[in-house]
Design a protein around this nucleic acid. Structure first.
Length: 143
DNA sequence: AGCCATGCACCG
DNA sequence: CGGTGCATGGCT
């Protein structure tokens, strides 16, 4: 039983805006999506976990899944999940704005399959057969 | 909520 | 010293 989630890449995600690639944002208001990724303890300040993501060519990339939660600890205003360490992978596959990165969970915890969907391909899957399954702007579950 | 941006540390 | 990522602030 596998599940996949897709995130459409923005200019900031690909580094085109000149940002230092702090990572893509993971919406925190979707329980299914949060349980899809490892649990990060809110009681811990800025907890993180390493994801082992295997791409289509069998190469495994380590990505950092982190919960910036300083707001919960009175340290700052942050309260959001992020996935960082994607720059090498994105460059390897020449990711562009509009392309999507797809995470598919494996049977082993912390292990995921990743795939880059070109804009043209993801477009066809853009019309959703089941309304209500769209997760916010960037993220969406795929079947 | 989500995307854009940056000062600094670290490391090759 | 340039690239990368951390942690955070800012803007919409």
């Amino acid at each position: 039983m596998t599940t996949s989630y897709r995130k459409r890449l923005t200019a900031n995600d690909t580094g085109e805006t000149g940002g230092h690639q702090a990572g893509i944002c993971v919406p925190r208001d979707d329980d299914a999506l949060l349980s899809f990724f490892p649990t990060l303890d809110p009681a811990v300040f800025n907890p993180d976990a390493w994801l082992l993501c295997e791409d289509d060519s069998g190469v495994e990339w380590r990505m950092r899944y982190i919960y910036y939660n300083g707001r919960l600890h009175g340290r700052n205003t942050r309260n959001e999940y992020r996935i960082t360490h994607m720059t090498k992978y994105l460059r390897r596959w020449g990711a562009k704005v509009g392309d999507s990165i797809v995470f598919t969970n494996k049977s082993t915890p912390f292990h995921y399959g990743i795939r880059l969907e070109r804009e043209a391909d993801s477009m066809s899957a853009e019309e959703d057969p089941l309304p209500g399954l769209i997760i916010l702007r960037g993220w969406k579950r795929v079947f």
